[in-house]
């Protein structure tokens, strides 16, 4: 198995595909944290919500592409509701209330999802784009996973341009560097934070919608992916787009190859990587603030 190049290629692509989902989830989380020292533990639940809403849209309309478009918008709307009702009030409350409330929100959202969609894994029944297989050496490989990789790379490129070429991007970078000075120069950091929060929610919804045709949708999927996402944020370095990207690659590779090569130890491979990074580079690989 190990001498077969197609094994490495297939696992490499699997790593990339997982990494791109982790990237879509972690990027919002890390920039929100860098900007406002705010942790939203319920971020994974928005991923599940994106998948479930995406499932319903795809079933109702027969179009998975429509689901990709509308599910992120719906999740963004839910995010706006959460912001107005809870998160804005938590902003100045300190880390402990933030962690407790958003942790509680995980269970509220999971039960709400179970109530609305049930507890079963839901797979789309209609046509899925890129549903064919390609061949890597002798191995058949689902083309849809390449599509997930492409979405992740496209989002990274888009966010890179947004962050480095627009005024909003400059406001985000300035806010992450020094929120007080940015505010004293006329930047409405609170509004910037709100926009970044919404964008993060939308990307979590997109990740869920895009993952749904490949992995089905179920209420518990948000909790499963939360821990790797938080690990990516720490490994990559807080507040940084490239950090989230590189951290996602590291954790995607670690999880995928850990499972393929050492199935008995797959559970600890990610934590070993986390500990190694914390020992060698406690600030993370590419933090926004050096």
């Amino acid at each position: 198995m190990l001498t077969d190049p197609s094994f490495w290629l297939v696992q490499g692509l699997n790593s990339l595909q997982l990494a791109m989902l982790l990237f879509l989830l972690s990027v919002g989380l890390t920039v929100i944290f860098g900007l406002m020292n705010f942790v939203n533990l319920a971020h994974g639940s928005l991923y599940a919500l994106g998948a479930l809403i995406g499932y319903s849209i795809a079933e109702a309309s027969g179009s998975v592409f429509l689901a990709f478009l509308l599910a992120p918008l719906a999740v963004t709307a839910v995010g706006a509701l959460l912001y107005i009702t809870l998160i804005e009030r938590l902003r100045s409350a300190g880390p402990l209330p933030q962690v407790l409330v958003t942790f509680g929100l995980i269970f509220v959202l999971m039960d709400a999802q179970r109530y609305l969609w049930g507890s079963d894994a839901l797979g789309v029944t209609g046509d899925v784009p890129f549903s064919g297989t390609i061949h890597i050496g002798s191995e058949p490989y689902p083309a849809y996973r390449l599509f997930i990789i492409a979405v992740g790379i496209a989002v990274f490129a888009g966010l890179y341009l947004l962050l480095n070429r627009t005024r909003l991007g400059a406001e985000v970078r300035a806010g992450v560097d020094d929120a007080e000075t940015a505010a004293a120069l006329g930047v409405n950091v609170e509004r910037t934070f709100f926009l970044v929060f919404l964008l993060g929610c939308g990307l979590a919804g997109l990740a869920g919608a895009v993952a749904m045709p490949a992995f089905s949708a179920e209420a518990g999927m948000g909790v499963e992916i939360l821990v790797p996402t938080l690990v990516v944020v720490v490994v990559g370095g807080l507040g940084s787009l490239s950090g989230a990207f590189v951290g996602s690659l590291v954790i995607g590779v670690t999880l995928t190859f850990g499972t393929a090569l050492f199935p008995d130890f797959a559970g600890i491979a990610m934590y070993a990587a986390l500990v190694a990074v914390l020992l060698l580079r406690p600030q993370g690989l590419l933090p926004a603030r050096s």
Partner: peptide, 20 residues
């Protein structure tokens, strides 16, 4: 306002510090 310790944004170029 000119803050104590200047508060130049290290992630922004000189020009971006101004266009901000």
């Amino acid at each position: 306002y000119l803050p104590e310790h200047r508060g130049v944004f290290p992630s922004l170029s000189v020009h971006e510090n101004l266009t901000l």
